[in-house]
Amino acid sequence: MSTASDTTARVHDATPDNWVYRHLPRPVWPYAQLARWDRPIGWELLMWPCLWSSALAANYLAGENALPVWTFVAHLILFFIGSVAMRGAGCTYNDLVDEEIDGSVARTRSRPLPSGRVTRRQAKLFILGQALVGAVVLFCFNGFSILLGLSSLVIVAVYPFAKRFTDWPQFFLGLAFSWGGLMGWAALTGSLSLAAVLMYGAAIVWTIGYDTIYAHQDREDDALVGVRSTARLFADDTKIWLSGFYVAMGLLLFVSFLLAGAGFPAYLGLIAALVLLGYQIKVLDINNPLQCHALFKLNGKVGLILFLGLVCAIPFA
């Protein structure tokens, strides 16, 4: 049975029965909440472009009879670890920047910083620890990938402030969250190509789409505190904008697959993913926060489907 103390130690926008509350000691809860370990969809969405890009490069290298299979597998594991660590560091940094705003929004005022369960100094030390894990992962890759990964930190640093100066903070999130679309290819090939750049662009428009759906949960609160978003900008035209983003995503991925010589299963995965995205647009009710959250989370399956299609297309020897 949950006590009143247990209830105040939880955040309102995470499921009450998630693994953090069931398996981690209570003193760890605030840090798990800062890193969003109680909501794995975030690191999944950060990870999928990394894995897409790595699998796309594997398709290309297999066609050239130059695929290092075990290196590819190791990279998938490294991207998983890095995604969890860097998503956690990014969320903690975002919470530091947005502490006052979070305290004014019903969905976020129970988070560790605005609720006072973690100090700013503790949060900063936690960022450092997670960033060190991310750095260890990054330095497992080649030199070009290390420089490419480090260059993304500029975008990561700017993103939390974007909602204050533009109606398109989701675009800045896309720039940051989609960087893996470049990293996976670079880590296996040591360079970039048009195929990887197009995949990066596809991941950006995908991110704008799913985060617009997510932002509709807070549209009214955001208007009260002056936070800007594509959800507020698009309003009742959201479905039209989403259709454009997802069509663009499909076209960019299609050309990317062609350029990399991806096999037939990759295109089947793309079709299945687009069907799932089309379903989101069809049923979306921007005035239903619970449904918006559920549809946002459905994008984890979109990412998985695209990855499985690309992996199945690799002609392993």
Rank of each mutant, 00 (worst) to 15 (best):
G278K: 05
A273T: 11
Y267L: 08
L242A: 00
I305F: 14
N94K: 10
A215D: 12
L153I: 12
Q291R: 11
R36S: 06
I240G: 10
I305V: 15
L224H: 11
G143D: 13
V227L: 07
G278I: 15
L252N: 02
W179Q: 03
R36L: 11
I314G: 04
A157H: 04
L61D: 01
Q291H: 10
P68M: 08
P114M: 10
G250E: 10
T189A: 10
D95A: 01
L194Q: 03
L194G: 01
W52Y: 08
M86R: 01
L252C: 03
H216D: 06
W179L: 05
N299Y: 11
L173E: 09
P68S: 12
D218G: 02
G149N: 00
T238M: 06
L290E: 15
L24A: 03
T92E: 10
L298K: 13
L310Y: 03
G244N: 13
T119A: 07
V97H: 00
A272D: 10
R26K: 05
P160T: 00
P315E: 10
W70R: 09
G226S: 06
H23V: 03
Y214G: 04
E64M: 12
Y214Q: 09
L96G: 03
W206S: 00
R117T: 09
I286N: 06
M183K: 02
D285N: 15
G184N: 05
P16L: 13
G278Y: 13
P114V: 04
R39K: 15
L304H: 05
Q217H: 14
L46D: 01
Y159V: 00
S5E: 13
P49C: 09
N18V: 07
L224E: 14
I146Q: 08
A106D: 15
A35W: 01
Y93L: 10
A9H: 14
W241C: 10
D236H: 14
A32V: 05
P25N: 09
D98H: 00
A215P: 12
P160L: 01
Q217D: 11
A202Y: 06
L198C: 04
G226H: 07
A262N: 00
R26A: 12
G263Q: 01
G261S: 13
I305W: 06
W19Q: 11
T71Y: 12
A196I: 05
F79L: 05
L258P: 02
W37T: 13
L173Q: 02
T108E: 08
A57M: 12
F161D: 01
V205F: 06
V69I: 15
I213N: 00
S191P: 08
G88N: 07
G250I: 07
T15A: 14
R26I: 07
G149D: 03
L173D: 01
A215S: 14
T108G: 03
W241Y: 15
A313S: 13
S53M: 11
W19I: 15
V205W: 00
V20D: 02
R109H: 14
T166G: 01
D6R: 02
K163W: 05
L276R: 07
G300N: 13
V227C: 07
G226F: 02
M86T: 01
D167Q: 09
L78F: 13
K163F: 04
Y21Q: 07
S115V: 12
K124S: 13
M1Q: 11
H293Y: 13
L233F: 15
A55D: 07
A106I: 14
S2V: 06
